[in-house]
Design a protein around this nucleic acid. Structure first.
Lengths: 332, 332
DNA sequence: TTGTAGGCGTTATCAC
DNA sequence: GTGATAACGCCTACAA
């Protein structure tokens, strides 16, 4: 029994009648252990109710057993999206298979929080970053401290130091807007995402790639929420009443856009074509259903898990960009 | 620099020109350190960018720096309650003052989850328990492993081993029902909470204490949600159409009850008096406003923090029961 | 295959 | 006040 009252590998070794080295061996992998010894140890393990001391393990060089999850903006509605939520659950489940638990600070809005920022760096090993603003000081902080980071979306400004999984946002946006053009639309507006989030930047860049010239009046920003989609669309309608299409940077905002357009008496897609992004659950519950850019959620989860595990195992940063696919429905 | 590349107290000691024992002293408390040494160390601390290694600290006997939060039921609507949410935030904030972070497993429904149950016991030190079912095997598990637990509500079956903060649910219910009787109500029904949660049990017990005889037809159970409050009330109306009062075990459910009563054409409080519990935010937004039992949320948060801190510091289990207070409004 | 030093980064207890 | 030095519980060579 240790000071703390918990049984240690020494106790286990004693009751198993072997050295503590042997116990350690069966605990990790179990190479180079005779069948007899292993059996004796395993028996002793349960009879003593041994629970490994993670602190000691880590200190002795074992790999981390937790991954911290930080989402940097106050967007509960974002996590409420079944796709995103499923992404997280898949990831958590896969990590669980490796005996790794995903934890999150309670009641904070991510690394921007002072306490969290300070403590996260000391406590957690790999950190999964969600919605990290470009040039976020908090992220820079973590990077400085060499905390292994894995981001959802390209960590603009830290591409070399932070692992990431992203979809090809720019290409997806370009494809959708090109499609709108191919259908004869000429005054294509966009409800872009937050200018400080990588997705917001990239999807807007893709829009600019595909659109003929660039007219600032055709751009309005939202924060990915339904309400902001409505507000931005109203702004667009005022700024450019002659628009005949809108590329909206998320399906949630696009749903809001549809409502505003209907209220304004514009038919979709006849008067105004609307394109979304994400292929979120809501894309098929609107009327008309949304033409959108599909994100391969399952692959996204798989890659995220892979990147996380690589970091857990001590590998350096690396990134993947997943292809996206146009999904044509009724709205455009 | 350590193996992991991080600076250690050795590095700090070297640049400060003192022994690492001195560094450790200024790091903790700082007693018995000359002003000169302290100054040198503090300078070295920042110049080297030292970050303490928590694993090593814990291993050497320092106190925990995290508290895990587990809520055992899938009730997001429960956490969405501003009072409960505020409770958590207050608590988190107070802990932050002690450099302790509150974390929660991601995407699980508490200790019932296999991975969580297994890992929580090894990783976390004090665990804050929410809505732990009476006789929950998961809780028993943690208790067996000597994980310091602090529960919200009386941990029935583990009163001696688990710290807790609770309100006097039985007394509160008794007071409210007695009040109903004093106002001339004679067929007093109740929408009770879940029979496997301490609050559910105690508030029902208080109801039985105060009511004249016990008629099973006057009891229906809900799960604290708005919807369940509606459903339970409908059941009551069928089982006992002659009821003239309902004691509902939570304000959220009481709000649902009001709607059902109105639809059924019963006037509140004229035909049916309704009493709630919690004095939640919703209690003042219903029509009529709810007569209810007020929980002293601020004190609750303070006590919770205190209990948590005691556990962090290695103290044994202890519990507090907070007094409640009747709050008379329009519904009864 | 097995046992045994040595070390991980701190804290705490000693003499000095 | 200050500097050694022994834990803390475990892992990983290395020797046997």
């Amino acid at each position: 029994m240790s000071r703390s009252g918990r049984t240690t590998i020494y106790d286990v070794a004693r009751v198993a009648g072997v050295s503590y080295g042997t116990v350690s061996r069966v605990l990790n992998g179990g190479r180079s252990v005779s069948a007899g010894a292993r059996k004796a140890v395993e028996r002793a393990l349960v009879s003593t109710g041994y629970v490994p001391n993670q602190q000691a393990r880590r200190l002795a060089g074992a790999r981390p057993d937790t991954v911290a999850f930080l989402h940097c903006v106050n967007s509960d509605q974002f996590l409420a999206d079944p796709n995103v939520n499923g992404l997280l659950l898949d990831c958590r489940h896969a990590l669980g298979d490796h005996d790794i638990m995903m934890v999150a600070p309670v009641g904070t809005s991510g690394p921007a929080d002072v306490v969290t920022r300070k403590l996260a760096a000391q406590i957690f090993d790999p950190v999964l970053l969600f919605s990290a603003p470009t040039a976020s000081p908090a992220v820079a902080d973590l990077v400085d401290r060499d905390v292994p980071l894995v981001a959802c979306g390209i960590p603009l400004g830290h591409e070399r130091q932070v692992s990431y999984v992203s979809t090809d946002d720019r290409e997806g946006a370009r494809q959708l807007v090109s499609y709108l053009r191919s259908r004869g639309r000429r005054r294509i507006a966009t409800v872009a995402g937050p200018p400080d989030l990588p997705g917001g930047v990239q999807r807007l860049a893709g829009y600019r790639d595909a659109v003929a010239g660039f007219d600032p009046a055709l751009v309005a920003h939202g924060d990915y929420s339904y309400a902001s989609g409505m507000a931005a669309t109203e702004r667009l309608l005022r700024q450019a009443p002659d628009l005949d299409a809108i590329f909206v940077a998320s399906d949630m905002m696009a749903a809001g856009a549809l409502v505003v357009l209907e209220r304004a008496g514009r038919r979709v897609p006849e008067d105004v074509a609307v394109g979304g992004y994400d292929d979120a659950r809501i894309a098929t519950t609107t009327r008309p259903q949304l033409t959108t850019v599909r994100i391969p959620w399952q692959r996204y989860a798989d890659e995220l898990t892979r990147q996380l595990l690589r970091r857990v195992d001590g590998a350096g940063p690396s990134g993947v960009i997943l292809p996206v696919e146009l999904t044509i429905r009724g709205s455009a």
